[in-house]
């Protein structure tokens, strides 16, 4: 089956092609976009195991990933069981009225999943023990973050360690869109950081961490669409709300002791070329920051865990 390969000039075909109906499992982040009235969209990227659609709308997520079960379950994803038909970049699509239409394919959600499930209470002592374990595992891994040694990355680490909003925001603004690829390393780091601050902050009752997450999120999402790729901008918006891929959520559960950390981290680190390592770095900075904020850190020069 071929979808959406007809020339774009031929907008209205003489005969409507037979529609193929399929169903899948959608992130609840997509519920509003899906249930609002139909909007045009276009294929932003296409791979054997996934298609990214950019919806012409202001609301987020404005990029929707339609992926098979083998792909990473991004927080803006609709997961389908069957292989996704071939489709070319730039092809027309639409989203709304409960349906995602890509070429002749109509997709409906038969299941909804939460991309930001509550982590539940987490023991700060356990988290503190998990940090060096995670650091060691990351250091040992051959998968390296894309911005190792980068000044802005260092600044973010320091800013968070000191709970310095100013330095954090300065670093964050430098990091948005920094690095190559569809999801630049800077964005992945920030996404990991935002998700860790929010979930681990909530899980430990560390209000300052959630507060920091709110401010950093506002800073990075403010003009993300203009500063990075559309998919990365959407993922930052998701991260701002604590929404993340299954791999990231598994590491958070691992840190909280709800599943084993090592395989979860191993799996995360395998993502992409540097994405997994970038996300993991962001998570480490976030975890370290939450611990510091709990310890009453945050005064200039008072951060003790700058090693993340």
């Amino acid at each position: 089956m071929t979808v959406g390969t007809r020339p774009r000039t031929q907008r209205v075909p003489a005969r409507a092609p037979a529609r193929t109906h399929a169903t899948g499992a959608a992130s609840t982040a997509l519920r509003r976009t899906l249930e609002s009235s139909r909007r045009p969209a276009r294929v932003l990227a296409a791979f054997p195991a996934g298609v990214y659609l950019e919806v012409r709308a202001d609301l987020e997520p404005h990029v929707i990933a339609v992926v098979t079960g083998e792909a990473t379950r991004l927080p803006n994803a609709m997961v389908v069981g069957d292989p996704i038909p071939r489709v070319s970049v730039g092809a027309d699509a639409s989203v709304g009225d409960g349906v995602i239409e890509i070429g002749s394919l109509s997709l409906r959600a038969h299941r909804w999943w939460d991309p930001a499930p509550p982590l539940g209470p987490a023991d700060p002592v356990r988290l503190a023990q998990a940090l060096p374990v995670m650091t060691e595992l990351c250091d040992r891994s051959p998968k390296r973050p894309g911005l190792e040694g980068n000044g802005a990355a260092g600044l973010l680490t320091e800013g968070c360690a000191e709970a310095s909003l100013l330095r954090g925001i300065m670093a964050a603004e430098q990091l948005v869109g920094l690095g190559p690829g569809l999801t630049p390393s800077g964005d992945d780091m920030l996404a990991g950081l935002l998700v860790a601050l929010r979930h681990l902050g909530t899980a430990t009752g560390t209000g300052r961490a959630v507060w920091l997450a709110d401010w950093l999120a506002a800073a990075v999402t403010f003009d993300a669409r203009g500063r990075t790729t559309p998919i990365s901008a959407t993922l930052l918006h998701c991260a701002a709300r604590g929404e993340a891929s299954g791999e990231v959520l598994a590491v958070l559960r691992g840190l909280a002791g709800r599943q084993s950390l090592e395989p979860a981290l191993h799996r995360l680190l395998q993502l992409g070329h540097t994405s997994g390592a970038d996300l993991a770095w962001g998570l480490r900075i976030g975890l370290s920051s939450v611990l510091d904020l709990r310890d009453g850190g945050g005064e200039p020069g008072g951060g003790g865990r700058g090693r993340a």
């Binding site: 899948g24 499992a25 069981g81």
Partner: peptide, 25 residues
């Protein structure tokens, strides 16, 4: 309750197909 669910189905295929429609592996 917290992981990504995978199901082993034995028996009525219609129940399995309902899982397929939900993209449950």
């Amino acid at each position: 309750l917290s992981g990504e669910l995978h199901v082993i189905t034995a028996g009525t295929e219609v129940l399995g197909e309902a899982l397929d429609a939900q993209a449950v592996p």
